[in-house]
Computed example of a mutant assay.
Amino acid sequence: MKKYAIDFSHSTIGFSVKHMMISKIHGTFESYNAEIALPDIEQVEGGSISFTIAVASVSTKNFDRDVHLVSPDFFDADVYPKILFTSTDIKKLGDKEYAIHGDLTIKNITKPIIFTTIYTGNGVNPWAQEVYGFQAKTQIDRREFNLVYNTLLETGGVLISDEIDVVVDLELNPI
């Protein structure tokens, strides 16, 4: 197995959620680490991937909303400071496309999820270091992780959708 490190300045763990059922709010987690071991960077089957995300690092570019997200109404970061993901299986779907099966833990609730993942290519950066790109996407139902805060709107509907889109863009370097 070969190990890879994330280039944090060129990687993002992001999410989006519908707001008032008419627009999307986007956010990121600014602090995370990962352990990535793969038999071959372009054939990732048989590899292992795990992430630890600091909940308090959530950023939606709105201070009040970010404070609310780490409060007991949502993530309750003082009690549950980490989000964890650990892969359980990686299957090839097609040319440069994979299904990364794994366990996602939020607020001590663990559920299986699948990231549809694309190997986006490789190159050599200006410092002569190899770089490899991946994009992984999934959707979760926040209620399954006890993220249940919501408000009914006078016009009907809810303030926040239950479905959260998660997109992980990674640039990796061999260790």
Rank of each mutant, 00 (worst) to 15 (best):
G47D: 04
L172G: 06
L84W: 08
K92P: 01
L170V: 02
A54Q: 14
Q43E: 15
H10M: 08
S48D: 13
A56I: 06
F134V: 06
H101E: 13
Y4K: 00
D78K: 14
I160G: 01
G102E: 07
V58C: 06
K91V: 15
F8V: 04
F145R: 01
S59L: 05
Y32G: 03
N146L: 07
N150A: 01
K96C: 12
I22A: 05
F51M: 05
F51Y: 13
K96M: 10
P39K: 12
T105L: 13
I6R: 07
G27C: 03
A5S: 12
D103G: 10
H101Y: 14
V67D: 15
S87C: 08
E97I: 03
E42Q: 11
T138P: 00
V79M: 15
V70Q: 03
Q135A: 09
K107H: 10
K3V: 02
T120F: 05
G94L: 04
Y98F: 15
V148A: 14
H68R: 09
T105C: 10
L153W: 11
D66K: 03
S31Q: 09
T86W: 00
L159N: 03
P72K: 10
A99N: 12
I113S: 00
V167I: 09
A56D: 13
S71G: 11
Q135Y: 04
N33I: 05
D64W: 09
E30D: 11
E42D: 12
Y98P: 04
D78C: 02
V55A: 09
V167P: 00
A77P: 04
S161D: 15
F134L: 08
A99Y: 03
T117V: 01
F15Q: 10
F74Q: 00
G133K: 06
D165L: 04
D165G: 07
M20V: 11
F51N: 02
I90P: 03
E154R: 08
Y80M: 07
P72Y: 11
K18D: 02
K92H: 05
K107A: 04
T52N: 06
D78N: 12
N125H: 08
Y80N: 15
V168K: 04
T138R: 08
T110A: 06
V58E: 00
A5D: 15
G157Y: 12
L159M: 13
P81M: 06
V148K: 13
I53T: 04
A5N: 12
T117A: 05
V168L: 00
I160N: 03
T12K: 13
W127Q: 11
L172H: 09
G14T: 01
F63E: 14
Q43T: 09
F85Q: 02
V67M: 11
H26V: 02
I41M: 07
P126Q: 07
I25D: 03
L93C: 02
S50D: 12
S9F: 11
D89S: 14
S161G: 14
Y98R: 01
Q43L: 13
G156N: 04
D89Y: 09
T155H: 04
T117H: 05
Q129P: 01
S71C: 07
V167T: 14
P72N: 11
G133H: 09
S16Y: 03
S50V: 01
K91W: 10
I164T: 07
Q139D: 12
F8Y: 15
F51Q: 03
L152Y: 08
V148G: 11
T138C: 04
Q135L: 11
P126S: 05
T28I: 13
S23A: 12
K92E: 10
I114P: 02
